[in-house]
């Protein structure tokens, strides 16, 4: 089995993912403190171990299937546009990072702006206006409609 069939690598990365999840569950369970309140055969560790078992079993079956070359038809497009992908996920994560300082209006607006750009829009001014309207609109809608104050961040006192 030296020459990998096309797609076998992606199949084995699925297996890796499942093994990682199963392993995580086992590790988390084994490092948990002992439970003295347990009644009967089912304690807080039982379900995690059961689910870990299911995941590892699935991983084993998938390995066998992959090595036998049996794989279900799936919708994998080979050419993935990782740049756009990264830009979108990056925009969300950036929002998570800066929101505590910048507040919702700036962080959310920035995220929208970056996402619109990533998805291919090049109307810079129009996009900026849309982002500002969305961010400010949601802020005031939450405040006046529901009394929820989304963090204003550095705009505290301005909004």
């Amino acid at each position: 089995m030296n020459r990998a069939r096309p797609g076998i690598r992606s199949d084995l990365s699925v297996v890796l993912l499942l093994v990682a999840f199963g392993g995580l569950l086992v590790w988390d369970t084994l490092t948990a403190p002992a439970d003295d309140m347990r009644r009967g055969p089912v304690g807080p560790q039982t379900m995690p171990l059961l689910v870990a078992g299911v995941l590892l079993l699935c991983a084993a079956v998938l390995t066998v299937e992959a090595l036998r070359g049996r794989r279900p038809r799936e919708s994998d497009v080979d050419a993935t546009d990782w740049r756009t992908w990264t830009a979108v996920i990056g925009a969300i994560l950036l929002c998570a990072v800066v929101i505590d300082v910048a507040g919702w209006v700036l962080a959310g607006g920035l995220m929208f702006y970056l996402c619109v750009y990533a998805f291919g829009s090049r109307h810079y001014v129009r996009d900026l206006v849309v982002a500002a309207v969305l961010a400010l609109g949601s802020f005031y809608l939450f405040y006046s409609g529901l009394g929820i104050e989304l963090p204003a961040g550095i705009l505290q006192g301005v909004l």
């Binding site: 925009a91 994560l93 998570a96 929101i99 995220m111 929208f112 996402c115 998805f119």
Partner: peptide
């Protein structure tokens, strides 16, 4: 398309964040 999907992301993040106003919820969403 750019506005639709950026809007969906914006909307999803707003919803996730507004409940507890915790930045970690946005990270979890991602």
């Amino acid at each position: 398309r750019p506005y639709l999907y950026a809007g969906i992301v914006f909307f999803a993040v707003l919803g996730a964040f507004s409940v507890n106003t915790q930045a970690i919820d946005i990270a979890l969403l991602a």
